[in-house]
Simulated scan of single mutants.
Amino acid sequence: MMHHRSLLFVPGNRPDRFDKACMAGADLVCIDLEDAVGAGDKDSSRTDVLSWLSQSDHKNVSLRINGIDTDAGQADIKALQEADLSLPFVMAPKVDSKSEINDLDDALPSGVGSLFPIIESAQGLENAYDIFNTSRVTMGLFGAVDYGADLDCALSWETLLFARSRLANAAAAADTLLFDVPHIIARDLEDCEATTRQAKALGIHARAAIHPAQIAAIHRALSASTFEIEQAKAIVAAYEKANGNVVIVDGKFIEAPVVKKALRVLAQNES
């Protein structure tokens, strides 16, 4: 399965931007029917988005529905049932429990590939592993802004470190690709890249974006350097030559966990 590094959100009430978003270089595109669309535009945006998706040739674009416990969310689900589209994923906001994701799994047609829950509450964080550990869930997103509002905490790196670390652990245990929250200051590309590198160091290897300009910064942060790739190749080659026995490369002992990391670097940076 391809390793996705980036996801670009585009407002569901801006159909003039859909094609542009799909050409912006992000690995995935998510048309947003939730936060980006006001209450008065929910119905018309839903109709426009599903109509556009039914005619689109883009393969990695889908949508974020409204909360499944809301009237708008139930209307989104009903519309998806009736449309019966083939979609790579459906993103679900404010998922607090496994039962919610199971209900969504039962409700959505088989043409929807992955369920993509957003963890953005204290309760959701407590249940993250159970939410991620569902067969149809392959990706998840940390919704830091709503999470911070739920806790009434600051949105600094330090205050959210625990939540990020716990989600990274839950996602790894459930073999789920975790996306970090978009950088909310769209044009601060330097900090976008820096904080993406920090998230990568925690084990978060993908990030969402709210502006096309952020994609290149995210990709730079998540891509291994030429030296790291060559080192990974050397480690794998030496380990294979040693028939899986401990070997020394550049003065360092190379054992199975180091090889696992090297293989992951190569897989995530395939050209």
Results as ranks from 00 to 15, higher is better:
1 M>A: 05
5 R>M: 00
6 S>L: 01
7 L>Y: 04
8 L>D: 02
11 P>M: 07
11 P>S: 06
14 R>G: 10
15 P>F: 13
15 P>I: 15
15 P>E: 13
18 F>H: 13
18 F>N: 13
20 K>Y: 11
26 A>H: 03
26 A>W: 02
35 D>R: 04
40 G>R: 06
42 K>F: 11
43 D>A: 12
50 L>N: 08
50 L>R: 09
57 D>K: 14
59 K>S: 10
59 K>C: 04
63 L>D: 09
66 N>G: 06
69 D>V: 15
69 D>R: 15
69 D>N: 15
74 Q>S: 14
76 D>F: 14
77 I>H: 12
79 A>L: 13
79 A>T: 13
80 L>D: 07
85 L>I: 07
85 L>S: 07
86 S>C: 10
86 S>T: 12
89 F>M: 11
95 V>C: 15
98 K>V: 03
102 N>T: 11
105 D>I: 03
108 L>H: 02
111 G>F: 04
114 S>T: 12
122 A>W: 05
127 N>P: 01
129 Y>K: 08
129 Y>A: 07
130 D>P: 06
132 F>R: 09
134 T>I: 09
142 F>K: 00
144 A>Q: 00
145 V>A: 15
147 Y>W: 14
154 A>L: 11
155 L>H: 13
156 S>T: 06
156 S>Y: 03
158 E>W: 06
158 E>S: 08
159 T>S: 11
159 T>R: 03
159 T>A: 03
161 L>V: 03
162 F>P: 01
171 A>D: 06
172 A>F: 00
173 A>T: 04
176 T>F: 14
179 F>N: 00
181 V>D: 01
182 P>A: 00
182 P>C: 00
183 H>R: 07
186 A>Q: 08
186 A>I: 06
188 D>W: 10
190 E>G: 11
193 E>I: 06
195 T>S: 00
195 T>Q: 01
198 Q>G: 01
199 A>P: 00
201 A>D: 15
202 L>Y: 09
211 H>D: 10
212 P>M: 12
214 Q>C: 03
217 A>F: 14
218 I>E: 00
223 S>C: 10
224 A>T: 08
229 I>M: 15
231 Q>N: 08
232 A>Q: 06
234 A>R: 12
235 I>D: 04
235 I>V: 15
239 Y>S: 00
239 Y>W: 04
243 N>Y: 11
245 N>Q: 11
253 F>I: 06
255 E>L: 09
256 A>M: 14
257 P>Q: 14
258 V>T: 09
260 K>P: 05
262 A>K: 01
262 A>D: 02
263 L>T: 05
263 L>S: 02
263 L>Y: 04
269 N>R: 00
